Amino acid sequence: MSIGRTIRIYLDDGSISGIRHAEIVNWTGQAISAPRTQVKSLSDWEESKKPGVYFLFGVDETSGNSAVYIGEAENVLDRLQSHVATKDFWNEVVLFTNKDENLTKSHVKYLESRLVQFAKSAERYVVLNGNEPQQPVLPRGDRDAMEEFLSNIRVLLGVIGHKALESLAQHEVPKSLENQAHEESALASNNSNFSLKVKGISAKAVLTDEGIVVLSGSMVADKIRDSLSTGYQKLRAELIDSGAVVKGSDGILRFTRDRLFTSPSQAAAIIAGYAINGRHHWQTESGKTLKAVEESEATSI
């Protein structure tokens, strides 16, 4: 069973775009979010001068996509001040430290290494870390404590507005988040898994709270029809240009990674190459359409 959490967020100047302090009730960790323009103001926050990990969020200059750099430091504020001078891409920092003095250099290096792994696995942001940080060996008790710390970082980071650690679909879960995600995925019935089969094209997807996630390996029609809207044609071309959809040696276009779509019809149209009602064509393993699943769930409330 999923466990609820109570989260407190303090707005330093009353603005949602300024410095924010976030914490989970009964957890010793804490998060501070600040725009780049207010990093100097963090000198008034003792919480920022402790050992911890941090996320720099911005835009990748090469691809134009959202990007993140993940780091660690014994004094996070000192490190951030150096990044203001040396890294141009970012416009927001989110840092995590502990309210007590129990986070050591080894602990934060462990957290950094695991967080980079999670962010790369999630594939939501371009991860700008050149190399994957080496993971130190911790005593079993310390390692388990850091895994719990990571789980809470994931929650607070998402609440602050960045889903950099969230897998698009629960079929792939970063190892250190397995314990927490296990309960979440166990709650999802087979009605969350769908397939689409049209004119020799086969695709699989998972329905999530964010939309529908087409899974890596799903096929895409080679040609499009006039009924495919201009917007969908443009999105399809972007998927191919970015390498999210690639033609294999067998001449078939396939998704190379999981891809989130805002609606079932958008996903179905991109895959089929023409206008199509996704709620009628995405089906469960038992052959139940997405429309029928939604109607069934609505009547059971």
Rank of each mutant, 00 (worst) to 15 (best):
Y54C: 02
I160K: 00
D144V: 12
L235E: 14
L128S: 09
I16C: 05
V293K: 13
N102W: 04
E210I: 06
S82T: 15
Y54S: 00
A34R: 00
Q117K: 15
A237T: 12
I240L: 11
A237G: 06
D250G: 10
D142P: 00
H21M: 04
E46S: 12
I3H: 10
K204D: 12
D100P: 01
Q30K: 05
R259S: 12
V94S: 05
S202R: 15
I201W: 11
E184M: 12
E23P: 00
Y69C: 06
L150M: 12
K120M: 10
W45M: 11
I3Q: 10
E123W: 06
V76D: 00
A188F: 08
D241V: 11
K163N: 11
L196R: 03
D44N: 15
I9R: 12
Y69F: 14
A145G: 03
S176V: 09
V220E: 00
R257H: 09
E72M: 11
R36P: 02
V220Y: 05
A244C: 06
L260M: 12
L196N: 02
A221W: 02
H280V: 07
V93I: 13
M1D: 02
L228S: 11
H280L: 15
G287Q: 12
H171Q: 03
A181C: 05
Y274A: 06
F149R: 01
A186M: 13
N102H: 12
E92M: 02
K234Y: 11
I301F: 13
Y110P: 00
R225N: 10
S218T: 01
K247M: 14
R279C: 04
D13Q: 00
Q170N: 09
G248P: 02
I201A: 08
E184H: 10
R5Y: 11
A181T: 07
S167I: 01
T230I: 10
I301P: 06
E123A: 14
E285G: 03
D144I: 13
K204C: 08
F149M: 04
V108Q: 01
V25W: 06
G58Q: 01
A292F: 08
N102S: 15
S43W: 04
V76Y: 10
I301H: 13
S189Y: 12
Q135E: 15
L260H: 04
V246T: 09
R143W: 04
V173E: 03
N131H: 13
K50H: 03
G18N: 00
R124T: 11
V59W: 05
A188Y: 11
